[in-house]
């Protein structure tokens, strides 16, 4: 327990140090662009693929489990929309991203630690927290953009699977999509997406930055980082849902 508190304390000190002594703007700007390329653009493919197919599966599962003839078929579109907007796109894509982006961040910073590149930066007088972590945090502020794509492709995947598979008609699905739409649900989804983005940028950075040992420990740190990032996302999800939807 004491060790856990120590980690939490060190994590917040890291965040504080990240905002001290800024790196020169033109250097920082180039780092931010590189991080956007690595973390955001590099994730578009996998997020699109997963969202499209999971959206399809959600819609098919809903359709085939609605055996009662009294249940209208447009509910398939409604259930797909709600699932994708409220949970799948913001939360489950974030957990997938904890594996993809989180492991990448931990292993890249961890490798820099092992090969003394972080020491080299410190000896030069660079604020390594700001130089290494801040660009990732800034890059992740456009993470909600990925989630918009995920929402759209998930719903489109559901529509495509249902209409081509004969589970519902085009009109039923579109009716369901438009049924009882609450705009605040989008706000809720984007508020939690933004919080998940901050978790995705900082917890893996912490695990990479403070790792000790060699190549084997870089692998272990990536795994630990994935576990703790996922746990933090799930707890934050529960907290935000209780706060905003109940």
């Amino acid at each position: 327990m004491i060790k856990f508190i120590e980690h939490v304390g060190r994590y917040f000190i890291m965040l504080q140090k990240m905002l001290e002594k800024f790196t020169k703007f033109d250097v920082l700007w180039r780092l931010i662009l590189r991080e956007i390329d690595d973390l955001i653009i590099g994730s578009l493919g996998i997020v699109s693929l997963i969202s499209f197919f999971v959206g399809g599966v959600v819609a098919i599962q809903t359709a085939i489990n609605m055996e009662n003839p009294l249940l209208p078929r447009y509910l398939v579109g409604f259930a797909t929309r709600q699932t994708m907007i409220l949970e799948f796109a913001p939360t489950f894509i974030s957990i997938i991203m904890a594996g993809k982006v989180g492991s990448f961040i931990t292993s890249s910073i961890g490798t820099m630690r092992v090969t003394e590149q972080i020491d080299a930066l410190e000896v030069m007088g660079v604020n390594t927290y700001n130089y290494l972590i801040f660009p990732k945090v800034v890059a992740m502020t456009i993470y909600p953009f990925i989630i918009v794509i995920s929402m759209f492709l998930g719903i489109f995947g559901g529509y495509f699977a249902c209409v081509t598979g004969g589970f519902t008609t085009h009109t039923d699905f579109i009716d369901g999509l438009q049924l009882d739409f609450v705009p605040f649900h989008l706000n809720y989804a984007f508020i939690k997406t933004f919080l998940f983005a901050m978790i995705l940028a900082t917890i893996p950075s912490y695990h990479g930055f403070f790792m000790k040992g060699g190549a084997l420990e870089v692998g272990k740190a990536s795994t630990t980082s994935f576990v703790w990032t996922s746990v933090a996302i799930i707890i934050m999800n529960s907290f935000v849902t209780n706060l905003l939807l109940t």
């Binding site: 002594k21 590189r34 090969t115 020491d119 080299a120 000896v123 007088g125």
Partner: peptide, 24 residues
């Protein structure tokens, strides 16, 4: 102080055992 240390560090050069070159 922190400023003087930063200034001192810019007056230092370091060659690390594994060279510590930036991979990227």
């Amino acid at each position: 102080n922190s400023k003087e240390r930063t200034k001192l560090r810019q007056d230092m050069g370091m060659v690390f055992q594994g060279s510590a070159l930036f991979d990227s």
